[in-house]
């Protein structure tokens, strides 16, 4: 089943073009599969199914192997992610200083389970492993921004802050 291009939006098409360009330079022998998946993840924000097919055919790696790798690593997601990925660090230091309560607060406020995305595609909630900022425990990351010493009560405010940033941006664009 070849991927019918008309179904894809224009942005996805250029992203696909960049992916194909990268694939052309990659060879299966030097373990090109994971860098290819990482490229797809960074381009699309997640690894869509048609990207898996492209990677499988151009690197000549069976789909079963590609699927086995993409479902093994925590970093890859095959569902579209929210604009803001909230990762709560569940490292030992954070856990001992109350990260679980922070995670529960986020689950309540966003009405999400870990790994879920809000219907408005704004937030994805993840439980992450140690980010290496244990001095500022408990820590959460929103995309690449680290928030330190987060208290459960501050969670509502944080969500509101990003919601407003979104509306604000919404008006501008």
């Amino acid at each position: 089943m070849t991927m019918d291009t008309n179904e894809r939006t224009s942005t996805e098409l250029e992203q696909l073009a960049t992916l194909n360009a990268m694939l052309a330079r990659t060879s299966r022998e030097e373990g090109g599969l994971i860098p290819a998946l990482q490229t797809a993840q960074n381009l699309f924000g997640y690894v869509p199914h048609f990207a898996l097919e492209h990677i499988s055919t151009s690197l000549r790696i069976p789909m079963a192997t590609v699927y086995g790798v993409v479902t093994f690593y925590h970093f890859f997601s095959m569902q579209p992610r929210g604009k803001y990925t909230i990762r709560i660090c569940l490292g030992t230091a954070c856990y001992v200083l109350g990260a679980q309560a922070v995670l529960d607060a986020f689950r309540e406020q966003l009405d999400l389970e870990v790994g879920g995305t809000t219907p408005d595609q704004l937030f994805t909630l993840e439980a992450g492993r140690c980010f290496g900022a244990c001095g500022l425990a408990p820590v959460i990351m929103v995309n690449d921004v680290i928030h330190q010493r987060v208290r459960p009560e501050a969670v509502a405010g944080l969500i509101q802050h990003y919601r407003e940033a979104e509306q604000h941006e919404g008006e501008l664009v």
Binding site: L90, G91, T92, A93, C94, R129, C130, G132, C134
Partner: peptide, 12 residues
Amino acid sequence: DEGDPGAYMDRS
């Protein structure tokens, strides 16, 4: 890979 939670010397 420094996967141990609570270890961040490699990062530094």
